[in-house]
């Protein structure tokens, strides 16, 4: 029963987080907005801290709302600074997320110690702390006794799937040709806002399990690896999901099952290992892509670039 108690919940949480993030991440990578995920995930900290201070609890709903609001503030502030300051987008993003993150670090000092949340835990999550004590005879209904984080992640995962399925056409068109999309009446601005909201939701739901920096790896690495292997959006999404699952499961086992073979009782940080493994997948995909594309004299034409 140790697998069910110790490993099932973290595995489920990591897999759900990786899939939800990778699904959104496909569009971030295509739109050259990967770093928006970076900015949002840093900025989530003050949102969560503020929600904690206002409600004095760890209820998931206020936390999600606070973090999503912080994510949208990041997006809006970045655009504002970019247009007012006429600085490049990277710098505008850097100003926004470092200031917000610093604010979060200060706010977190005001949270009573009785609530277990500190800056370190926000950074690299606490995947291993998810335990499940299943009832003796396991039925489908006993899944409800899984830790809350798993439920939140499952909910966000379903929401992400629903959103990307319903708006598949809109997302694709606004990602590849925002001008045409606008001319056809698809409102790229609105789609972008919705996508950013979705990214914020995925980041918030995942950060509790894997931490705010490593969630960036989940957002970017599987889609980036998939992007190198195919030019078709549908294939890329499916591939990214497969890579996300492999990353989560492989990383978790590499952290918890592999080290004890060499040093007794040693386990490593699972979230960090998942990020490391996702880097290995990117490397592998890059090598495969180079071998596959070698015979051609010219490098493969890049994806139709989304204009800015």
């Amino acid at each position: 029963m140790t697998f069910l108690t110790l490993d099932l919940a973290p595995l489920l949480a990591a897999t759900l987080a990786a899939c939800a993030c990778a699904l959104v991440g496909n569009y971030l990578v295509l739109r050259r907005q990967s770093l928006m995920g970076d900015a949002i995930s840093h900025a989530v900290l003050p949102g969560i801290a503020a929600a904690f201070i206002l409600t004095a609890s760890r209820e998931p709903i206020p936390m999600l709302l606070g973090a999503a609001a912080a994510g949208l503030v990041t997006v809006a502030l970045t655009s504002l600074i970019q247009s007012l300051g006429k600085v490049d987008r990277g710098a505008a993003m850097g100003v926004t997320f470092t200031t917000l993150f610093a604010l979060g670090v200060v706010l977190i000092q005001h949270i009573p110690r009785t609530i277990d949340l500190d800056a370190d835990c926000v950074l690299h999550g606490n995947l291993e702390a998810l335990l499940w004590f299943p009832p003796d005879n396991i039925t489908l209904a006993s899944l409800a006794t899984l830790p809350r984080q798993v439920h939140t992640l499952a909910f966000v995962m379903l929401g992400t799937i629903a959103f990307t399925a319903v708006f598949y056409k809109e997302l694709r068109l606004t990602s590849f040709d925002p001008a045409l999309a606008g001319a056809l009446g698809f409102r790229p601005g609105l789609v972008n806002t919705l996508l950013m909201t979705l990214a914020a939701a995925a980041v918030v739901a995942s950060f509790e399990a894997v931490g705010s920096i490593l969630v960036i790896a989940m957002l970017i690495c599987p889609p980036a690896a998939a992007r190198m292997l195919t030019n078709r959006l549908g294939t890329q999404i499916l591939l990214s999901q497969a890579i996300a699952i492999a990353t989560a499961v492989g990383g978790y086992f590499a952290a918890t099952q592999l080290p004890p073979l060499f040093v007794p009782d040693l386990t490593l940080n699972a979230a960090g290992m998942i990020a490391t493994v996702s880097g290995i997948f990117v490397l592998a995909a890059a090598i495969v892509a180079r071998i596959k594309d070698r015979p051609k004299p010219n490098p493969p034409s890049p994806a139709p670039s989304p204009a800015h």
Partner: peptide
């Protein structure tokens, strides 16, 4: 993200 993950490990 990958280097930071490695650092955490």
């Amino acid at each position: 993200s990958v280097t930071f993950g490695l650092g955490v490990v």
